[in-house]
Design a protein around this nucleic acid. Structure first.
Lengths: 159, 159
DNA sequence: GAGACCATACTCGGATAGGTCGTGTCCGAGTGGGGGGGG
DNA sequence: CCCCCCCCACTCGGACACGACCTATCCGAGTATGGTCTC
């Protein structure tokens, strides 16, 4: 079980866009984080498809958040990039083989399926309880406001 | 993010072994669940390596639980088969690029890393709170004791 | 001087190869049981 | 009749291909900007 590495990039971009006051291109975000621009574009497209960021084309175009960061949860970003499908897929093993359970007994999810689903929901709830604004608040609380100001200034500086 | 499909098989096997009173071969478990015997063997070997089951070779050999099912959690099985590595791997993006954070500022995990770790821990805690005995109790509570008895009888029956 | 037009350079978006890990399979090493022989 | 020995069939364990998904990349479609020409 391995999560897509692009999730980390997407979260960092969401955090950085918190400090931006105008659209930022994918190339600039990639340069800032020193990652592959082409691949980062893929993650940003996924976020755009999910409605987390708005993309504007043309010169001075780029990505910007569509909602205030306090209304974007970490789970939103994770599901946008990594997909909303739960990690565990029940294949209804109990309905197969010589000791297969009767079809009507399989109306309710099996105990294993329930346990995995509950864990998945706990994971999602934890990610849902943290917003991008919370991340920004934690960073400023630990390292000062200069971090976000530095990002904003770097965005405003000419390439 | 997709979990190994073998986890489901391993959990069903752990549940089935609850009803066994003597070692059960991998081939028999595979026949019972109608899955690939060769591949199921791989999962059972992983559980053996993790110390969840004991394997005995030779005739009438097979696998049996090493501990009472009340002391085997679902998390134990998941980690044995799928690996104990957390799904999220922090690559310390903040320490790269033109706005890289100072090395001493990176002594503590970044906010993103903490959020993902907390979610992972919540997931693990949920899986840790359910034991194989709990699963068996749920099944007997819903479908009667006949299920486990049927499994035991099928194990005792000649191939 | 003001307005409209156009060329341009920049942006995103999806379609396209390569690498890595999960999936599935196979065969060899090891071992306990059962039958046969001997006492 | 009981004990010992040997053969065997059955077991696990690790090593070996195949395939799917993630990773990484490229080129084409579209658009706002800035300059230029005309009125």
């Amino acid at each position: 079980m391995k999560m897509s590495g692009g999730v980390e990039w997407a979260l960092h971009c969401a955090f950085a866009l918190t400090a931006a006051d105008h659209p930022v291109s994918a190339a600039r975000l990639a340069e800032m984080h020193d990652v592959s621009a082409s691949y980062l574009a893929k993650q940003l497209q996924a976020m755009s498809r999910a409605g987390l960021v708005r993309s504007t084309q043309g010169n001075l175009g780029g990505y910007e958040l569509t909602r205030p960061p306090s209304r974007i949860t970490v789970l939103d970003v994770v599901e946008a990039v990594d997909g909303p499908t739960p990690a565990f897929l029940c294949t209804d093993v109990r309905a197969r083989g010589p000791l297969a359970a009767s079809p009507e007994a399989c109306r309710t999810p099996c105990a294993i399926h329930r346990a995995m689903t509950a864990a998945d929901e706990a994971w999602r709830a934890s990610l849902r309880s943290v917003t991008i604004a919370d991340l920004a608040a934690q960073v400023t609380g630990e390292h000062g406001r200069g971090v976000l100001d530095g990002v904003r200034n770097w965005f405003n500086a000419a390439p």
